[in-house]
Amino acid sequence: MKQTTIYLSLVASLFFAACSGNSSSEQENKPIVSQKQMEASEQASAGSQVAHPGKAVYDKYCLVCHQADGSGVPGMYPPLTPNEWIADKDKMIHVALNGQSGEIEVNGETYNNLMPPHDYLSDQELADVISYVRSNFGNDLEAVTKEEVAAARK
């Protein structure tokens, strides 16, 4: 049973451009700008001194839920700003590797959701991303080595 329907859809990018007052020419340039930004971040992760090697891993695997600034999503995804999970190296390695589900409290807010495991990442990628989180978003903690990740896998 297929409904008879009319399709009213809207090219949202144009709509949002109109909303935020961008000119259409700016809008046309937008993908190019994003492309440049992506290249820039790839270059940075390939060895420049500014970007941490864990940033590329974070952007690809963690950012979607925990957000670019590590602030998380209220009621859904906890923040990666200083908290006991990040402070405890073993706990953080465990969460990143195996995921986490069930009710937890982070900085006074409760979460009851599911984080998938990331055990398909290499020891080096996990060490990088954990070290990146532990030295960003207001955290200033010791880095984690790939040997420590390898030991936790067993």
Binding site: L8, D69, S71, G72
Partner: peptide
Amino acid sequence: PSGDWEVFADGFSGQDEVKSPR
């Protein structure tokens, strides 16, 4: 629907751009 959708009430976020929901 007899036409396209439109924004009716805006300004809830209080920001020009929301990078992350918080």
